[in-house]
């Protein structure tokens, strides 16, 4: 970063005022819609099992040292509230992901996450678009595009039928060097290299991801099976990720175990399985849709700042 004194905030006071105004506007948006604000702990005994998320860990002294994780998202805690009957909830959550730093990443960042019992993916997409219109500009263009259509249009391949060799060759031609861990790693490269830069300006909702990229979304059986998941790109920048939430405790357990097996295989830290989340799902999570939105990126787009560290008071190199 620049040579200016590092005690100073990275964001100007003007940007901080804009950030505060957007926070207030988002809170009003949910208040009007009867969505309750919650705040769940940053420190928790379990964390995400996803192999692509590296959690930060520390210890607290309670009858001896007890390992705890800084939450990479409030998803697990919020689902436990939903299972306990909270109804619709939202949260501005501090989230932590190790080793993520760059113009679009800071290891500590602000997620706006919310859950809507009774909503399907389409209803949630409409609500996300409404919020973005309130926060960004009233008549922002909105497009919905399936993952498959986007790949066919912008990468020239069908993500479900293309052979792994064809995907690898296209990755290579797009400048990738290295070995692909799996098919979805190849599709991720093509998404960031070919699809994202080609997306229309405004809101583009990409939906129906491949089943192996379902994460915590429901998978709709079929050929191919499709993850009931969407991502919002705003002016080509990934802003939000939403699911028709997986509510089946058995399936959830299978996915966590599979993640943990892959962690062992790849020599990654094996995190404890999130038992309390599984118990909540066994008790019963209502049918719901949920979404997490990177609030710093949204502020960056609104402020016209290309590095999200300049919309944070103190990004990691000044914290």
């Amino acid at each position: 970063m620049s040579s200016e004194a590092s005690w100073r905030p990275a964001a100007t006071c003007e940007v901080l005022r804009l950030r505060a105004a957007m926070l207030a506007a988002a809170r009003r948006f949910f208040l009007k819609r009867g969505v309750m604000e919650v705040d769940t702990p940053v420190l928790s005994a379990a964390t995400a099992s996803d192999v692509h998320i590296a959690s930060l860990q520390t210890n607290i002294s309670l009858d001896g040292p007890k390992p705890v994780y800084l939450q990479p998202s409030p998803e697990s805690a919020m689902k436990r509230l939903l299972a306990a009957g909270s109804g619709p909830i939202f949260q501005f959550a501090r989230a932590f992901r190790d080793a993520e730093a760059g113009p679009m990443h800071n290891p500590e960042f602000l997620l706006l996450e919310w859950y809507r019992p009774g909503f399907d993916l389409g209803a949630l997409i409409n609500e996300v678009a409404a919020l973005v219109a309130v926060l960004m500009k009233p008549k922002i263009p909105v497009e919905q595009l399936s993952y498959r259509e986007a790949f066919i249009s912008y990468a020239g391949i069908d993500p479900y039928t293309a052979s792994i060799e064809a995907i690898a060759e296209l990755c290579r031609r797009s400048g990738f060097r290295g070995a692909l861990d799996d098919r979805s790693a190849g599709l991720d490269i093509l998404l960031t290299r070919l699809v994202q830069p080609a997306l229309s300006p405004g809101c583009v909702f990409l939906y129906h991801f491949p089943a192996d990229q379902a994460a915590l979304a429901k998978v709709r059986p079929g050929n191919p099976p499709l993850a009931e998941r969407f991502e919002l790109f705003l002016d080509g920048i990934e802003i939000a990720n939403g699911y028709q939430e997986l509510i089946d405790a058995r399936e959830q357990r299978i996915r966590i175990e599979a993640d943990l097996a892959r962690r062992r295989e790849r020599g990654l830290p094996v995190v404890p399985a999130d038992i309390r989340l599984l118990q909540a799902l066994e008790h019963g999570l209502p049918e719901c849709a949920g979404v997490a939105l990177g609030f710093d990126r949204l502020v960056g787009l609104k402020a016209g700042v290309e590095d999200i560290r300049r919309v944070m008071a103190f990004p990691v190199d000044r914290a």
Partner: peptide, 11 residues
Amino acid sequence: EFVKPGKGQAF
């Protein structure tokens, strides 16, 4: 530059 889709591989 660090690039990472929210739910995917880091590049």
